[in-house]
Protein backbone atom coordinates (compact mmCIF):
# COMPACT_ATOMS: atom_id res chain seq x y z
CA UNK A 1 0.00 0.00 0.00
CA UNK A 2 2.69 2.38 1.05
CA UNK A 3 4.84 1.79 -2.00
CA UNK A 4 1.88 2.84 -4.13
CA UNK A 5 1.70 6.04 -2.13
CA UNK A 6 5.37 6.77 -2.60
CA UNK A 7 5.23 6.07 -6.32
CA UNK A 8 2.05 8.03 -6.63
CA UNK A 9 3.18 11.02 -4.58
CA UNK A 10 6.53 11.53 -6.21
CA UNK A 11 5.61 10.14 -9.59
CA UNK A 12 8.68 7.93 -9.75
CA UNK A 13 9.13 5.08 -12.14
CA UNK A 14 9.51 1.61 -10.68
CA UNK A 15 13.22 1.41 -11.49
CA UNK A 16 13.92 4.82 -9.96
CA UNK A 17 12.07 3.96 -6.80
CA UNK A 18 13.85 0.64 -6.54
CA UNK A 19 17.27 2.15 -6.99
CA UNK A 20 16.53 4.80 -4.36
CA UNK A 21 15.45 2.11 -1.93
CA UNK A 22 18.51 0.05 -2.73
CA UNK A 23 20.79 3.04 -2.24
CA UNK A 24 19.22 3.86 1.11
CA UNK A 25 19.52 0.24 2.21
CA UNK A 26 23.17 0.10 1.17
CA UNK A 27 23.87 3.21 3.23
CA UNK A 28 21.71 2.31 6.20
CA UNK A 29 23.00 -1.19 6.83
CA UNK A 30 26.73 -0.47 7.08
CA UNK A 31 25.99 2.69 9.05
CA UNK A 32 23.84 0.70 11.42
CA UNK A 33 26.55 -1.88 11.84
CA UNK A 34 29.16 0.80 12.46
CA UNK A 35 27.00 2.65 14.95
CA UNK A 36 26.13 -0.44 16.99
CA UNK A 37 29.67 -1.68 16.79
CA UNK A 38 31.12 1.59 18.01
CA UNK A 39 28.53 2.44 20.64
CA UNK A 40 28.14 -0.93 22.25
CA UNK A 41 30.85 -3.30 21.12
CA UNK A 42 33.67 -0.84 21.66
CA UNK A 43 32.52 1.86 24.03
CA UNK A 44 29.91 0.31 26.25
CA UNK A 45 31.95 -2.83 26.78
CA UNK A 46 34.96 -0.68 27.66
CA UNK A 47 33.00 1.33 30.22
CA UNK A 48 31.58 -1.83 31.76
CA UNK A 49 35.16 -2.98 32.25
CA UNK A 50 36.55 0.31 33.63
CA UNK A 51 38.33 1.00 30.36
CA UNK A 52 38.13 3.78 27.81
CA UNK A 53 37.94 1.84 24.59
CA UNK A 54 39.56 3.16 21.41
CA UNK A 55 40.75 6.74 21.69
CA UNK A 56 43.03 7.58 18.84
CA UNK A 57 41.20 7.21 15.54
CA UNK A 58 38.83 10.13 15.22
CA UNK A 59 37.19 11.92 18.15
CA UNK A 60 36.99 9.40 21.02
CA UNK A 61 37.98 6.68 18.61
CA UNK A 62 34.77 6.95 16.63
CA UNK A 63 36.44 6.02 13.35
CA UNK A 64 38.13 2.96 14.79
CA UNK A 65 35.83 0.51 13.03
CA UNK A 66 36.42 2.17 9.68
CA UNK A 67 40.14 1.89 10.27
CA UNK A 68 39.65 -1.75 11.18
CA UNK A 69 37.65 -2.33 8.02
CA UNK A 70 40.45 -0.80 5.94
CA UNK A 71 42.93 -3.03 7.72
CA UNK A 72 40.82 -6.09 6.95
CA UNK A 73 40.61 -5.11 3.28
CA UNK A 74 44.38 -4.94 3.05
CA UNK A 75 44.89 -8.44 4.36
CA UNK A 76 45.66 -11.44 2.27
CA UNK A 77 42.71 -13.64 1.39
CA UNK A 78 43.70 -17.07 2.67
CA UNK A 79 42.01 -20.36 1.92
CA UNK A 80 42.94 -23.46 3.86
CA UNK A 81 44.53 -25.98 1.50
CA UNK A 82 41.85 -28.59 2.04
CA UNK A 83 38.94 -26.15 1.93
CA UNK A 84 36.04 -26.47 -0.46
CA UNK A 85 36.83 -23.19 -2.15
CA UNK A 86 33.51 -22.25 -3.66
CA UNK A 87 31.50 -22.98 -0.56
CA UNK A 88 34.16 -21.36 1.58
CA UNK A 89 33.92 -18.16 -0.43
CA UNK A 90 30.14 -18.16 -0.64
CA UNK A 91 29.52 -18.67 3.08
CA UNK A 92 30.10 -15.10 4.33
CA UNK A 93 28.02 -13.74 1.48
CA UNK A 94 25.13 -15.97 2.45
CA UNK A 95 25.34 -14.81 6.05
CA UNK A 96 25.50 -11.15 5.05
CA UNK A 97 22.70 -11.57 2.50
CA UNK A 98 20.44 -12.95 5.19
CA UNK A 99 20.87 -9.85 7.30
CA UNK A 100 20.47 -7.54 4.28
CA UNK A 101 17.23 -9.26 3.33
CA UNK A 102 15.92 -8.77 6.84
CA UNK A 103 15.96 -5.02 6.38
CA UNK A 104 13.59 -5.25 3.42
CA UNK A 105 10.42 -5.57 5.43
CA UNK A 106 11.21 -3.43 8.45
CA UNK A 107 8.89 -0.42 8.50
CA UNK A 108 10.27 2.88 9.78
CA UNK A 109 7.38 5.19 8.87
CA UNK A 110 3.97 5.16 7.20
CA UNK A 111 5.66 5.05 3.79
CA UNK A 112 9.28 4.52 4.75
CA UNK A 113 9.53 0.80 4.11
CA UNK A 114 11.39 -0.96 1.37
CA UNK A 115 8.78 -3.58 0.65
CA UNK A 116 5.55 -3.82 2.61
CA UNK A 117 4.96 -7.56 2.37
CA UNK A 118 1.70 -9.00 3.63
CA UNK A 119 3.65 -11.92 5.08
CA UNK A 120 6.28 -9.69 6.66
CA UNK A 121 6.70 -11.60 9.91
CA UNK A 122 6.90 -14.89 8.10
CA UNK A 123 9.44 -13.51 5.66
CA UNK A 124 11.63 -11.93 8.35
CA UNK A 125 11.83 -15.09 10.42
CA UNK A 126 12.45 -17.27 7.37
CA UNK A 127 15.20 -15.05 6.04
CA UNK A 128 16.90 -14.72 9.40
CA UNK A 129 17.37 -18.48 9.63
CA UNK A 130 19.20 -18.41 6.32
CA UNK A 131 22.28 -17.18 8.16
CA UNK A 132 22.59 -20.56 9.86
CA UNK A 133 22.98 -22.06 6.40
CA UNK A 134 25.91 -19.75 5.78
CA UNK A 135 27.40 -20.64 9.16
CA UNK A 136 27.08 -24.33 8.42
CA UNK A 137 28.65 -23.80 4.99
CA UNK A 138 31.54 -21.94 6.58
CA UNK A 139 32.02 -24.61 9.21
CA UNK A 140 31.95 -27.45 6.74
CA UNK A 141 34.01 -25.88 3.98
CA UNK A 142 36.83 -24.69 6.21
CA UNK A 143 38.18 -28.22 6.56
CA UNK A 144 38.99 -27.47 10.19
CA UNK A 145 37.79 -29.46 13.15
CA UNK A 146 37.10 -26.42 15.24
CA UNK A 147 35.12 -24.81 12.45
CA UNK A 148 33.21 -28.01 11.87
CA UNK A 149 32.24 -28.28 15.51
CA UNK A 150 31.14 -24.65 15.44
CA UNK A 151 29.06 -25.12 12.31
CA UNK A 152 27.40 -28.25 13.65
CA UNK A 153 26.64 -26.52 16.93
CA UNK A 154 25.00 -23.69 15.00
CA UNK A 155 22.88 -26.19 13.10
CA UNK A 156 21.99 -28.08 16.25
CA UNK A 157 21.10 -24.85 17.96
CA UNK A 158 18.84 -23.76 15.11
CA UNK A 159 15.86 -25.83 16.07
CA UNK A 160 16.27 -25.08 19.75
CA UNK A 161 15.75 -21.36 19.40
CA UNK A 162 13.97 -20.98 16.07
CA UNK A 163 10.89 -22.71 17.41
CA UNK A 164 10.40 -20.53 20.50
CA UNK A 165 11.22 -17.48 18.40
CA UNK A 166 8.40 -18.21 15.98
CA UNK A 167 6.01 -19.28 18.70
CA UNK A 168 6.71 -16.09 20.62
CA UNK A 169 5.85 -14.01 17.58
CA UNK A 170 2.66 -16.02 17.10
CA UNK A 171 1.12 -14.34 20.11
CA UNK A 172 1.70 -10.94 18.55
CA UNK A 173 0.30 -12.10 15.23
CA UNK A 174 -2.84 -13.42 16.88
CA UNK A 175 -3.36 -10.21 18.75
CA UNK A 176 -2.72 -7.99 15.73
CA UNK A 177 -4.71 -10.13 13.31
CA UNK A 178 -2.02 -9.75 10.66
CA UNK A 179 1.34 -11.01 9.46
CA UNK A 180 2.06 -7.62 7.93
CA UNK A 181 4.58 -5.70 10.04
CA UNK A 182 3.01 -2.36 9.12
CA UNK A 183 -0.36 -3.66 10.27
CA UNK A 184 1.17 -4.87 13.50
CA UNK A 185 2.44 -1.35 14.16
CA UNK A 186 -1.02 -0.03 13.34
CA UNK A 187 -2.63 -2.50 15.72
CA UNK A 188 -0.32 -1.27 18.49
CA UNK A 189 -1.01 2.38 17.60
CA UNK A 190 -4.75 2.09 17.50
CA UNK A 191 -5.09 -0.41 20.33
CA UNK A 192 -6.33 0.53 23.75
CA UNK A 193 -5.36 -0.58 27.23
CA UNK A 194 -8.48 -0.74 29.35
CA UNK A 195 -10.02 2.02 27.32
CA UNK A 196 -7.01 4.28 27.64
CA UNK A 197 -5.68 4.61 24.13
CA UNK A 198 -3.34 7.60 24.12
CA UNK A 199 -0.09 5.59 23.96
CA UNK A 200 -1.73 2.85 21.97
CA UNK A 201 -1.08 -0.69 23.09
CA UNK A 202 2.55 -1.72 22.72
CA UNK A 203 2.46 -5.47 22.75
CA UNK A 204 5.20 -5.65 25.35
CA UNK A 205 2.44 -4.98 27.88
CA UNK A 206 0.13 -7.77 26.82
CA UNK A 207 2.77 -10.09 25.41
CA UNK A 208 5.46 -9.67 28.05
CA UNK A 209 6.17 -13.41 28.19
CA UNK A 210 6.36 -13.41 24.41
CA UNK A 211 8.78 -10.49 24.52
CA UNK A 212 11.05 -12.28 26.98
CA UNK A 213 11.04 -15.46 24.91
CA UNK A 214 11.68 -13.45 21.77
CA UNK A 215 14.63 -11.68 23.33
CA UNK A 216 16.15 -14.91 24.66
CA UNK A 217 15.74 -16.64 21.31
CA UNK A 218 17.08 -13.62 19.47
CA UNK A 219 20.15 -13.78 21.68
CA UNK A 220 20.64 -17.34 20.47
CA UNK A 221 19.89 -16.45 16.86
CA UNK A 222 22.50 -13.71 17.00
CA UNK A 223 25.01 -16.04 18.72
CA UNK A 224 25.38 -13.55 21.53
CA UNK A 225 26.89 -14.63 24.76
CA UNK A 226 24.76 -16.89 26.82
CA UNK A 227 24.23 -18.84 23.61
CA UNK A 228 27.39 -18.17 21.61
CA UNK A 229 28.46 -21.81 21.46
CA UNK A 230 29.03 -21.76 17.66
CA UNK A 231 31.64 -19.04 18.14
CA UNK A 232 32.96 -19.86 21.63
CA UNK A 233 36.35 -18.16 21.52
CA UNK A 234 37.78 -20.04 24.46
CA UNK A 235 36.69 -23.48 23.29
CA UNK A 236 36.49 -23.42 19.52
CA UNK A 237 38.73 -20.39 19.05
CA UNK A 238 36.09 -18.59 17.01
CA UNK A 239 34.17 -21.62 15.79
CA UNK A 240 32.90 -21.43 12.24
CA UNK A 241 34.92 -18.38 11.25
CA UNK A 242 38.24 -19.55 12.64
CA UNK A 243 39.76 -19.99 9.17
CA UNK A 244 38.55 -16.70 7.72
CA UNK A 245 40.78 -13.71 7.27
CA UNK A 246 40.60 -10.30 5.69
CA UNK A 247 37.42 -9.04 4.15
CA UNK A 248 35.62 -12.38 4.44
CA UNK A 249 35.99 -12.14 8.18
CA UNK A 250 34.83 -8.55 7.90
CA UNK A 251 31.66 -9.75 6.19
CA UNK A 252 30.95 -12.12 9.08
CA UNK A 253 31.55 -9.35 11.55
CA UNK A 254 29.33 -6.89 9.69
CA UNK A 255 26.61 -9.50 9.35
CA UNK A 256 26.72 -10.18 13.07
CA UNK A 257 26.29 -6.55 14.03
CA UNK A 258 23.81 -5.76 11.24
CA UNK A 259 21.67 -8.74 12.24
CA UNK A 260 21.70 -7.51 15.80
CA UNK A 261 20.43 -4.18 14.51
CA UNK A 262 17.76 -5.87 12.41
CA UNK A 263 16.57 -8.04 15.28
CA UNK A 264 16.39 -5.06 17.59
CA UNK A 265 14.28 -3.38 14.92
CA UNK A 266 12.07 -6.45 14.67
CA UNK A 267 11.59 -6.49 18.43
CA UNK A 268 10.76 -2.79 18.29
CA UNK A 269 8.16 -3.31 15.60
CA UNK A 270 6.61 -6.38 17.18
CA UNK A 271 6.60 -5.39 20.82
CA UNK A 272 7.51 -1.75 21.40
CA UNK A 273 5.06 0.00 19.11
CA UNK A 274 7.39 0.49 16.16
CA UNK A 275 7.82 3.94 14.70
CA UNK A 276 4.52 5.40 15.81
CA UNK A 277 4.57 8.40 18.14
CA UNK A 278 1.63 8.85 20.50
CA UNK A 279 -0.50 11.81 19.57
CA UNK A 280 0.15 11.69 15.85
CA UNK A 281 -2.22 10.56 13.17
CA UNK A 282 -1.14 7.09 12.00
CA UNK A 283 -0.66 8.17 8.38
CA UNK A 284 0.76 11.65 9.04
CA UNK A 285 3.50 12.28 6.43
CA UNK A 286 5.73 13.93 9.05
CA UNK A 287 6.13 10.48 10.62
CA UNK A 288 8.19 9.47 7.61
CA UNK A 289 10.87 11.75 9.08
CA UNK A 290 10.20 11.38 12.81
CA UNK A 291 9.41 7.67 12.62
CA UNK A 292 12.93 6.53 11.75
CA UNK A 293 14.30 8.57 14.64
CA UNK A 294 11.89 7.04 17.10
CA UNK A 295 12.71 3.65 15.67
CA UNK A 296 16.41 4.31 16.09
CA UNK A 297 16.01 5.30 19.72
CA UNK A 298 14.01 2.16 20.47
CA UNK A 299 16.42 -0.01 18.50
CA UNK A 300 19.35 1.33 20.49
CA UNK A 301 17.49 0.58 23.69
CA UNK A 302 16.88 -3.03 22.67
CA UNK A 303 20.41 -3.43 21.34
CA UNK A 304 21.72 -2.04 24.62
CA UNK A 305 19.97 -4.84 26.50
CA UNK A 306 21.26 -7.44 24.04
CA UNK A 307 24.85 -6.28 24.40
CA UNK A 308 24.53 -5.73 28.13
CA UNK A 309 23.61 -9.37 28.56
CA UNK A 310 26.38 -10.36 26.19
CA UNK A 311 29.04 -8.60 28.22
CA UNK A 312 27.82 -9.92 31.53
CA UNK A 313 26.92 -13.57 31.21
CA UNK A 314 28.95 -16.70 30.73
CA UNK A 315 28.11 -19.20 28.04
CA UNK A 316 25.79 -22.16 28.38
CA UNK A 317 26.65 -25.61 27.14
CA UNK A 318 24.96 -26.90 23.98
CA UNK A 319 22.95 -29.58 25.76
CA UNK A 320 21.93 -27.11 28.44
CA UNK A 321 20.55 -24.80 25.77
CA UNK A 322 18.56 -27.68 24.27
CA UNK A 323 17.23 -28.59 27.69
CA UNK A 324 16.33 -24.97 28.39
CA UNK A 325 14.65 -24.54 25.01
CA UNK A 326 12.62 -27.73 25.05
CA UNK A 327 11.74 -27.84 28.72
CA UNK A 328 11.15 -24.15 29.38
CA UNK A 329 10.91 -21.92 26.36
CA UNK A 330 8.75 -24.00 24.05
CA UNK A 331 6.12 -25.04 26.63
CA UNK A 332 6.04 -21.47 27.87
CA UNK A 333 5.53 -20.04 24.42
CA UNK A 334 2.85 -22.61 23.60
CA UNK A 335 1.04 -21.67 26.80
CA UNK A 336 1.42 -18.05 25.81
CA UNK A 337 -0.27 -18.75 22.48
CA UNK A 338 -3.11 -20.61 24.18
CA UNK A 339 -3.72 -17.81 26.65
CA UNK A 340 -3.54 -15.20 23.90
CA UNK A 341 -6.00 -17.21 21.83
CA UNK A 342 -8.43 -17.53 24.71
CA UNK A 343 -8.32 -13.82 25.38
CA UNK A 344 -8.73 -13.12 21.69
CA UNK A 345 -11.87 -15.23 21.53
CA UNK A 346 -13.32 -14.11 24.83
CA UNK A 347 -12.70 -10.38 24.51
Amino acid sequence: MSELTLTGALGLAYWAETSIKLGVALVVIPTAALMLGYLFLLKMMAFMQSRLGPQDVGPSGSLQLIADAIKFLQKEDIHPAAADRRVFRAAPVVVLASSFLLFVVLPTGPDAVVENLDTGVFYALAVSSLSVLGVLMAGWASASKYALLGGLRAAGQLIAYELPLILAVMGVVIQANSLNLQEIVRAQATGEIFGFGFVGNPFILTQFIGFLIFMISAQAELTQTPFDMPVAETELVGGFHVEYTGFRFLLFFMAEVATTFAFSALATVLFLGGWWIPGFDFDAPILNVLGPMVMLAKILLVAFVIFWIRFTYPRLREDQLQKFAWKVLIPLSLANIVVTGIFKVVL
Binding site: M45, Q49, S50, T225, T234, F311, P314
Partner: peptide, 13 residues
Protein backbone atom coordinates in the same frame (compact mmCIF):
# COMPACT_ATOMS: atom_id res chain seq x y z
CA UNK B 1 37.55 -18.70 34.99
CA UNK B 2 34.82 -16.39 33.71
CA UNK B 3 36.49 -15.86 30.40
CA UNK B 4 37.05 -19.60 30.01
CA UNK B 5 33.35 -20.22 30.08
CA UNK B 6 32.43 -17.20 28.03
CA UNK B 7 31.93 -14.20 30.30
CA UNK B 8 33.94 -11.30 28.96
CA UNK B 9 33.91 -8.85 31.83
CA UNK B 10 35.23 -10.66 34.95
CA UNK B 11 38.77 -11.00 33.64
CA UNK B 12 39.02 -7.25 33.16
CA UNK B 13 37.90 -6.71 36.73
Amino acid sequence: MGVQIGALTPVFF
